[in-house]
Design a protein around this nucleic acid. Structure first.
Lengths: 111, 111
DNA sequence: CAGCATCCTGTACGATACTG
DNA sequence: CAGTATCGTACAGGATGCTG
């Protein structure tokens, strides 16, 4: 969410879902709502700071819905909006591509 | 191209096509080979440094083929490999999604 | 024309500790 | 449990000038 005046659809999409974590979070939410703690565990390697930051941004873009249950202990559930679902669907082929070529990608020699 | 040990296909795909420019370059190459100067003009806003850097990385990953014509003046053409084509295809739905929701995305208030 | 070499900056991301 | 608050760093990305 930085620029304005996108040059094409891909440009706009990447601006929304870009970065290291958003697509992964989106994926974790694809089938059912998740609590903060669940996400922290399932999105391997993410810090609390990044998780909450990315969630807030996605909420701000209308991709994610945040539902607070006023209980003790606290409970908050994150879920995809229709908008988020549509983005997730658009990401499926990319995920499949990655899955199919994972070995190849892993085998690329790093500098 | 940073990590190893991807947690899912999407993770791997994003590692390959991530960043601000690679997907856009891929798109520019989708229908026919392009010369360096052509790319510099059509990928709006990219610097020479970033263009050559991204091209080299994509070449290294086997997504792009670099063909040098030993002429005067110099001529170099970049084109997609089969691998690159397949990635580009996987990105199509995302591009469509972006195209469709561009107005919505542009309308999101920035911080 | 197609690059390479430098220098510089912002920020994305990370580690750690603390709170309602 | 679900976050805040700080502090710190690496690297993505940018600006400019030069070269075979």
């Amino acid at each position: 969410m930085k620029k304005l005046g996108y040059t094409c659809g891909l440009d706009a999409a990447i601006d929304v879902v870009g970065g290291k974590w958003k697509a992964l979070i989106l994926w974790e939410l694809h089938d059912e709502p998740r609590r903060f703690g669940e996400l922290r565990r399932s999105v391997v390697g993410i810090s609390e700071k990044m998780l909450i930051q990315q969630l807030r941004e996605m909420e701000h873009c209308g991709l994610v819905h945040r539902e607070v249950y006023y209980e003790v202990p606290p409970k908050v559930e994150y879920s995809l909006t229709e908008f988020g679902q549509s983005l997730n669907t658009a990401l499926l082929p990319l995920g499949d591509w990655g899955e199919k070529h994972m070995r190849t990608i892993e085998a690329i020699p790093r500098p």
